[in-house]
Amino acid sequence: PTPPYLKWAESLHSLLDDQDGIHLFRTFLKQEECADMLDFWFACSGFRKQEANDGNEKMLKLAKAIYKKYILDNNGIVSRQIKPATKSFIKDCVMKLHIDPAMFDQAQTEIQTMMEENTYPLFLKSDIYLEYT
């Protein structure tokens, strides 16, 4: 069978589908001071998954927490990678209490594209990954 670390090189999704892969990628991102991008990506996925079993109040609290931590501060690594229009859309949703499971989807896609084009290829060439393999 293919060892997991070779699968990680196939696509960002194969990497993010493996606990050890996530751990190593996060260590790399931490070095580059952009681990927040990965946390945000997972927070968006988690937010979308919560809809079925959780009440509106919890969703609102969570949406506010994600907004405050990653988007509100324009100097934050995540905020800097998200388009202004996407940010104002999320801000509007939070302010008007329009909480929707898909409200972070566009922002997540933008961060994902950034990782696919930038940090993920760098990770595959990094000492951290090469030493692991």
Binding site: Q19, A43, Q50, K64
Partner: peptide
Amino acid sequence: IDSEDDLLQECISSAMPKKK
């Protein structure tokens, strides 16, 4: 603030793949 962070952390963990 703590509970907000906990909520966020719980949300992030819920999206991670389970140990194989």
